[in-house]
Structure formats: C-alpha cells, structure tokens
Simulated assay, not measured.
Amino acid sequence: MKKKPIILVTNDDGIIAPGIRALIHYMNLLGDVYVVAPNKAQSGIGHAITMNTILHCDSVKIDNGIQKEWECSGTPVDCVKLAISDLLPRKPDICVSGINHGSNSSVNIMYSGTVSAVIEASIEGIPSVGFSLLDFNWNADFEPSKKYICQIVEKILHNPVPKKIITLNVNIPKLKKEEIKGVKICRQAESKWKESFNKRYNPKGRTYYWLVGDFINLDKKVDTDEWALENGYISIVPIQFDLTNYSILDLLKSWNFIVLFIFLLIF
C-alpha cells in the first residue's frame, strides 16, 4: 500500500488563525499532515530568522484533527527550518503555507512571511505553495478556495518535479464560489507601496510612528497577478529564490572594472 505523502503546513498569521485551520483541514484529505507554525502573528516578517534569542517549540492539540502540531516562538522561516531539522520523521513531500488573511500578490511577496516560508522550503529542495485570500477579516470565508487549493497541491504531488523545484505563490480573490472564474498562470505585477509614517504622541509625550500607505499598481497588462485578481481569477505565480537580474548581466560584464579601479586610485 502506497504511503501517504507528508505535508508540512505553516503560516505567518499564527497557529490559531482561521486560515491555517482551514488549510490543515484541506490537507488532511490529501496526506499525512504535520503543522509547525508561529505562536503569534508574524505578518510582514519576510524571511527573518531568529538568531539572538532562544526558540521554543511546543507540541499542541488545537482541534480534533489527525495532524501533529507544534507552535513555535519564532518566524515562519524558523518553523520550516525546525520542522525539517528536528520535528518531522523525514523531509516532507510538499510544504504549504497559509491560508493568509490578505493579499500576497505582486510586490507584497517581498514582505510576506507566508511566501518566505515556502521559499525556505524550496531552498531545502521541497516543492511548496503559499496560499493567500484577499480578505483581512479574521472570519473570512475560505470555503470557496477549497477545491482549487486541493487541486493545486494534488497536481504537484502527482506530477514529476522539475530540476528547479516548484514554488508557487497563489492568491485567491474575495468572491463567492460561483463567482470565481478559474485560474490564471501569471507573472508578478510591477507595483509599489507609497508609504508614510503618522507621527503621534503617547500620554507621556513620547513620540511614536504608525506606518500607513497606499498600494500602487504600475502594471496594467493582462498577464499579471493583479489583473487576474481584479477580474475574478485565482492567480498563480511561479517564484524562485534566485534574485539575479539576468537581463543586465551582459551589460555589467561589458563594464571595464579594471580601468575604473585605476581611475579611482589616481583621482
């Protein structure tokens, strides 16, 4: 009898967040589930790791599921590292992260603990997927995403993994089940945040700052994740941890750095 695949589940909203509880339920339909997730919200933590303080990781039982669970005092990346190094019986067949409360499309990838967790898994040679729902509400409805999430994970589990490990960033629009038009394979839209800090004072007169900002989509083409989400589709963007800008490699190689170095020494 074929063994069930081992599925590692994590997130950045914390182990009790409704999004991860829904994802755990879906993954229990597909494999042997292990959960290692932060004990508190870690949104916007990116690829941070814990180096200067100790980590705690405790076994917990949050619901009546069949999965094995640990809550960790560290970041989502810490959770993945601990899971692979110490907690799981072997390397997982896939790592899934989420379901995040809120978007991780376009430039938000850079800040996302949800996405960083799956990137860390891919560094370790594990196929991985990050799931996000465009709804920040704690009581968001994740049920419309169930069918698509299960299909995506099954596709990865049952198809040969290419030499470059599959890592997908999946965003789901806030729509009813019948309103979702389908899935689009996309590229990451060019975008940015226009940010500022509200300067305030506490009752003792000490200054503090509160980050605020507006999302700006600079890319109106129809092959992007932002276009897909705005038009009722689930967006899937394949991602990687190699940040090399290959488009300018040849340009940089054409620069004569030896001449430049001599020039700097002279002047």
Results as ranks from 00 to 15, higher is better:
3 K>M: 09
4 K>L: 14
5 P>Q: 02
11 N>M: 01
17 A>E: 04
21 R>D: 02
21 R>E: 05
22 A>P: 00
24 I>Q: 06
25 H>L: 14
27 M>N: 01
27 M>K: 09
37 A>R: 05
41 A>K: 11
41 A>L: 08
44 G>D: 05
44 G>T: 02
48 A>K: 13
49 I>H: 04
50 T>S: 11
54 I>R: 04
59 S>H: 09
61 K>Q: 11
63 D>Y: 07
63 D>I: 02
69 E>H: 05
70 W>A: 01
73 S>Q: 00
79 C>G: 02
81 K>I: 14
85 S>I: 01
86 D>V: 00
88 L>V: 06
90 R>Q: 14
90 R>D: 10
91 K>P: 00
91 K>H: 01
92 P>S: 03
94 I>P: 10
94 I>N: 08
95 C>R: 02
96 V>E: 09
98 G>D: 13
98 G>V: 07
99 I>R: 08
100 N>Y: 08
103 S>E: 12
105 S>F: 06
108 N>D: 10
113 G>V: 08
116 S>I: 06
117 A>W: 06
119 I>G: 00
121 A>T: 03
123 I>K: 14
127 P>M: 05
128 S>R: 05
129 V>T: 12
131 F>N: 08
132 S>W: 12
136 F>C: 09
136 F>V: 15
137 N>Q: 12
137 N>M: 09
138 W>G: 02
139 N>C: 12
139 N>F: 12
140 A>R: 00
141 D>W: 08
145 S>P: 01
145 S>I: 01
146 K>E: 15
149 I>E: 06
151 Q>G: 07
152 I>G: 06
154 E>L: 11
154 E>M: 08
154 E>I: 02
155 K>M: 11
158 H>F: 07
158 H>A: 00
160 P>G: 03
160 P>V: 07
161 V>C: 12
162 P>I: 03
163 K>D: 14
166 I>N: 11
169 N>T: 05
171 N>V: 13
173 P>S: 09
174 K>Y: 10
174 K>N: 15
175 L>R: 09
176 K>D: 13
177 K>I: 10
177 K>M: 13
179 E>F: 02
188 Q>C: 14
188 Q>F: 02
189 A>H: 03
195 E>N: 15
198 N>W: 12
198 N>L: 15
205 G>Y: 09
209 Y>T: 12
212 V>W: 06
214 D>A: 15
217 N>H: 06
218 L>Q: 13
218 L>D: 13
218 L>R: 11
221 K>G: 06
224 T>D: 11
225 D>F: 00
227 W>E: 00
228 A>H: 06
232 G>S: 12
233 Y>R: 10
233 Y>L: 05
235 S>N: 09
235 S>Y: 04
236 I>H: 04
237 V>P: 03
237 V>Q: 04
238 P>G: 09
239 I>P: 05
240 Q>H: 07
240 Q>D: 14
241 F>M: 05
245 N>V: 10
246 Y>R: 12
247 S>Y: 02
247 S>D: 12
250 D>V: 00
254 S>R: 11
259 V>R: 11
261 F>W: 07
263 F>T: 04
265 L>I: 15
266 I>A: 13
267 F>A: 10
